[in-house]
């Protein structure tokens, strides 16, 4: 075990981990936005919209994230989509996690008692208004945990974009192994840094969950 190596690589690795954080945040933002849309489609009264939502979820959950990343980054230029590795990675990860997050959102909405929608409608609220003021505020509380699980999966999943040479934590680790031949030290440091990121995220999710739970 080469402790001095660990000391030497840490600054570079922390910086690489920061790239992973940025990548995660951008993918998370894309994921949540797309997920909200897809959940809306899945919950629509219009059969064709519902079908589109279901199709999206099936495709993105039914194929490996790695293939989705490759398809966008390597396959994209062939159909006129030319992206930098970071952008391609962020978009592919975001679109992928959106499929899972859409199900978390949908699950939250469906977990709200049907009587809530009925009570709102019986007062004269339109369906959209009932959703916005009555159902969604309650569903939001129920979504936090499952969305948190999705977010953790996303952070760990960012390691995949090392394969398209986004200079994040895992890519940096592989590059250093090439020059030092010390995979144990390097992957151990990498793992610890991922754990710290995931732990930080878990704390945020806990806090959000408690803040919402305390409200009722």
């Amino acid at each position: 075990m080469d402790i001095s190596l660990v000391g030497r690589i840490i600054p570079v690795f922390v910086q690489a981990a920061w790239t992973t954080v940025e990548l995660s945040l951008i993918s998370l933002a894309i994921g949540l936005a797309v997920a909200a849309l897809i959940a809306g489609l899945r919950l629509s009264h219009v059969a064709i919209l519902r079908f589109l939502g279901t199709a999206y979820v099936s495709v993105f959950r039914g194929t490996p994230a790695l293939i989705q990343i490759f398809l966008l980054y390597f396959g994209g230029p062939q159909i006129g989509i030319q992206l930098e590795p970071f952008a391609a990675g962020a978009i592919a990860l975001g679109l992928n996690i959106a499929a899972y997050m859409a199900e978390s959102i949908r699950g939250g909405v469906l977990s709200v008692d049907r009587g809530q929608m009925e009570a709102a409608r019986s007062l004269g609220f339109a369906e959209g208004q009932s959703m916005r003021w009555i159902v969604l505020p309650q569903a939001a509380k129920l979504m936090i945990r499952p969305l948190g699980v999705n977010a953790v999966a996303l952070v760990k999943g960012t390691a995949l974009v090392a394969t398209i040479s986004v200079v994040e934590l895992t890519y940096t680790a592989q590059r250093f192994i090439g020059s030092t031949y010390k995979p144990f030290e390097i992957f151990a440091v990498t793992a610890v840094l991922y754990m710290i990121m995931v732990y930080g995220l878990t704390l945020i999710i806990d806090r959000l969950d408690r803040a919402y739970a305390g409200e009722a």
Binding site: G115, Q116, E118, S122, A126, I134, P137
Partner: peptide, 24 residues
């Protein structure tokens, strides 16, 4: 119809078996 029914429902109070108060 959506506009119509929302207007009509405002004129009818409904009380449910399970209350359906808004817990939030």
């Amino acid at each position: 119809f959506e506009r119509h029914i929302n207007r009509v429902r405002q004129q009818m109070g409904m009380v449910f078996q399970h209350f359906n108060l808004f817990p939030h």
